[in-house]
Amino acid sequence: MYKKILVAVDGSHCSDLALDQAIGLAATCGAELQVVHVIDNGYLKYDMGYVDLTDLRAGLIKGGEELLAQAREKAKAGHVSCKTVMVDEILALGDIAHQIRQLVESSGAQLVVIGTHGRHGMRRLLLGSVAESLVRLCPVPVLLVRAPEET
């Protein structure tokens, strides 16, 4: 069925659930898993005056590397072949869905798995939705893994 599955991780509970689903699917299909983390450079869109962003960028990159290392270990424990990719494109200015779509096209992924909070109404409008944008942009099927509603 699927030979290459791409899963996006960001450290949230939703993305942890998506990673678990992707590992299970990859194991069932005998597929290679590609785990991607996109550095969110959206903060660059806002004028913050003179601020040295060196430490912030270094922290984002280090956090991304740690997320990918954890994902790699989880995939290994699930006996799934796994590659990891960190995308750090400053000029994208936080357009994460577009970054993932480009990676899907260049990698040959046949399925994308991504977590979603399932927000709606004003919360979705205010916060945006990478998952929703990806569903509209992506040329391959997208599996949305929704976190249980918080009580």
Rank of each mutant, 00 (worst) to 15 (best):
A75D: 07
K76M: 14
K76P: 07
K76G: 07
A77C: 05
A77E: 15
A77P: 01
A77T: 14
G78A: 12
G78Y: 05
G78Q: 13
G78F: 14
G78D: 11
G78V: 10
G78W: 12
H79D: 15
H79P: 04
V80E: 13
V80P: 07
V80N: 09
S81H: 12
C82N: 09
C82R: 05
T84M: 08
T84E: 15
V85P: 00
V85T: 09
M86G: 02
V87N: 00
D88Y: 00
D88G: 01
D88L: 02
E89D: 14
E89I: 02
E89T: 06
I90S: 05
I90V: 15
I90N: 05
L91M: 09
L91K: 11
A92W: 03
A92L: 11
A92I: 11
A92P: 00
L93F: 06
L93R: 09
L93N: 02
L93H: 04
G94W: 04
G94C: 09
G94Y: 01
D95M: 07
I96G: 02
A97K: 00
A97H: 01
A97T: 00
A97V: 05
A97Q: 02
A97M: 02
H98C: 04
Q99V: 03
Q99W: 06
Q99M: 15
I100S: 08
I100E: 04
R101I: 04
R101M: 15
R101C: 13
L103W: 05
L103A: 08
V104D: 06
V104Y: 08
V104W: 06
E105F: 12
E105L: 15
E105V: 14
E105Q: 15
S106I: 14
S107Y: 13
S107A: 13
